[in-house]
Design a protein around this nucleic acid. Structure first.
Lengths: 212, 212
DNA sequence: TACTTGCGTTAGAGGTTCTAACCAATGCGA
DNA sequence: TCGCATTGGTTAGAACCTCTAACGCAAGTA
């Protein structure tokens, strides 16, 4: 099924994406230029439109790749048997992933392009990530009681696990938002100049979220 | 000191900014076009360069205005005597401010433009905002003990209040990151389609942060 | 009243995305 | 093995964008 043409096509697409990532890393997604990528590859601008319908499609692919990579990274880090240690490891892996390439994280969680709708595959990857978190919390006692529990019990459409306890849903959600709170401020540079060590704040928040 | 020319200049600058805000709200900051603004104002493109050195300078002004407005909004909401009620009110006001104009919030806390350095006035406004939070927590008992406290006590350069207790610093910081965690995901649309009510999650997180 | 300063203009350079039209080469079916 | 459709490259060009240069008019100032 993989005709030589298909193979070549995939190869070129990958090469384009590689250059795109390099450009995103240095100049951000908003400055991504198909023309510049073409020039780097030694071909002429419009040639790229044989491989990507337009700039948005390329960016969408990058977003999707990032989503899937983050989910895979989280899942790969979930090795410890003890749920607490597992969640801690997952959190650390996610932060490391974000710091490794800040703009990759921001491509997912930063300013969205208005009018841009995330493709279904993105929500799928998001669910996959959530299931890693949920897996940790279902193996843990309920945590402190919360009025949120019953609400989430009634609105659990987003949950990757139909049978998960409401308390686990709540804690996974909170884990996510708190982790994102610290990491997103860190990668966006809002801590620079403040003087403290973000790592310590992060660790404290993760520990608190695990017992929330 | 306000010569008629100065007055006119300020008036035009304000009008430009108004159009810029409208454009940011609908198409995001990355799509902001000086040319389009000029056309809307009935003048020709390059004329705007008499008022703003370049596109970046305009955006910087928008960012600054947003920063100051957020800080002022938070301060204005800090009316209740009871510190808990005060912090709750401040949090609600900040969330409302974000939801009122998502792109205004994202202009501050979203994806930063690489190579863009926040002007000193921005950090000033950030400190002002922080002082509102700090004011709430200094009026509250220390909360749960944390290893972070001593670290922050040693790295308190960012604190608007020299004499604030380390525990208050920690809790203000945590309040900020948690609030941002929920609000930023909400305004970026990451909760849409999940089905639950972000308001309830927010309220729960604020309550938890106040007692952190 | 004379003059400097500031604000507007158009022209244009150089960048972008993306479409249209064309051509060569590649791989596939007959 | 040959013919041909498909694919991937090309250039030209339209319609945007930012920003500079050069110029002229109309203000406020001395």
């Amino acid at each position: 099924m993989t005709s030589p043409r298909m193979r070549y096509r995939e190869q070129v697409r990958d090469e384009v994406k590689e250059h795109a990532w390099a450009q995103v890393a240095t100049s951000g997604a908003s400055a991504l230029s198909l023309n510049a990528i073409a020039k780097q590859m030694g071909i002429s601008g419009p040639a790229l439109y044989r491989y990507f319908r337009n700039r948005d499609e390329l960016i969408t692919e990058l977003v999707l790749d990032a989503y899937r990579d983050l989910a895979a990274t989280a899942r790969a880090a979930a090795t410890p048997k003890d749920p607490r240690a597992r969640l801690t490891a997952v959190a650390a892996a996610m932060r490391a992933w974000a710091l490794e390439a800040p703009h990759r994280y921001l491509l997912i969680y930063g300013t969205p392009v208005p009018g841009y709708a995330a493709p279904p595959e993105a929500t799928e990857a998001a669910r996959d990530l959530m299931s890693v978190l949920l897996d940790g919390f279902t193996a843990l006692p309920d945590g402190s009681p919360s009025t949120l529990n019953s609400h989430l019990d009634r609105h659990r459409a987003w949950s990757p696990d139909e049978t998960a306890a409401a308390a686990a849903l709540r804690r996974a959600l909170v884990f996510w938002t708190r982790l994102h709170g610290v990491v997103s401020l860190e990668v966006a540079g809002h801590f620079t100049g403040m003087g403290f060590d973000p790592q310590l704040l992060f660790a404290a928040e993760v520990a608190a979220a695990i017992d929330a």
